[in-house]
Amino acid sequence: MCETSSQSQWYALRTKSRHEKLVRDQLEKQGIEPLLPTVKRLSQWKDRKKEIEVPLFSGYCFVKFSQQDRLPVQKISGVVEVVGSGHRPEQIPDEEIEALKTLMTSVLPYDPHPYLHEGMMVEVVRGPLRGVHGLLLRKEKRHRLVIGVRLIQQAAAVEIDVDDIGPV
């Protein structure tokens, strides 16, 4: 067996709906390192309000394991699959996991956000351009939305707030 196949790597598990904490707890019981980023939400019932902790990424839990531990991880109750392409799990770079861990231990407030990147098609979800689709050109404090006419290969660009757009 080669050295790299026995080393632990980070992977994402897709879980059944509302099973993320159960999966995390079962992984810990088996001595396998999980990571479940959570956020606090105010939940309202008929008679009271309560602050609850919910997964940052609904339906996902991260786990660090080596390839020989893949089967026990997949057999955990609540696990749907190890995320990857085809039947091959894809590892998550350590720096992405470290960034999440740093965020979780910081005092800064954080929330889930649509995954946006330059070059992707987006839709304006609020504001005067609501319903317009365009290309995300630049990602900084403000985004630039490019609205194009393919047939004549012409486009217009407008500055837009990140909170007003979402992926198509």
Rank of each mutant, 00 (worst) to 15 (best):
E3I: 11
Q9V: 05
W10K: 01
Y11E: 06
A12F: 05
T15L: 04
R18L: 13
V23P: 02
V23Q: 04
Q26S: 13
Q26P: 04
E28D: 06
E28A: 11
K29W: 04
K29Q: 13
Q30V: 09
Q30A: 14
G31S: 08
I32C: 08
T38F: 06
K40N: 14
R41V: 15
S43H: 13
K46N: 15
D47P: 05
K49H: 08
E51D: 12
E53F: 10
P55Q: 04
F57H: 05
C61F: 07
K64M: 11
S66T: 04
D69R: 15
D69G: 04
Q74P: 04
I76Y: 15
G78Q: 12
V79Y: 13
V80Y: 01
V82C: 15
G84T: 09
G84P: 06
G86T: 07
R88K: 14
E90G: 11
E90D: 14
P93N: 12
E98Y: 03
E98H: 09
L100H: 11
K101G: 07
T102I: 11
T105H: 15
T105I: 14
V107T: 10
Y110Q: 02
D111V: 15
E118G: 03
G119P: 04
M120R: 04
M121H: 11
E123Q: 15
E123P: 05
G127K: 00
G127D: 00
P128M: 04
L129C: 04
R130K: 12
R130G: 00
R130S: 02
V132G: 01
V132F: 07
L135F: 06
R144E: 06
I147Q: 01
V149F: 09
I152Q: 09
A155L: 07
V158E: 00
V158W: 02
D164L: 03
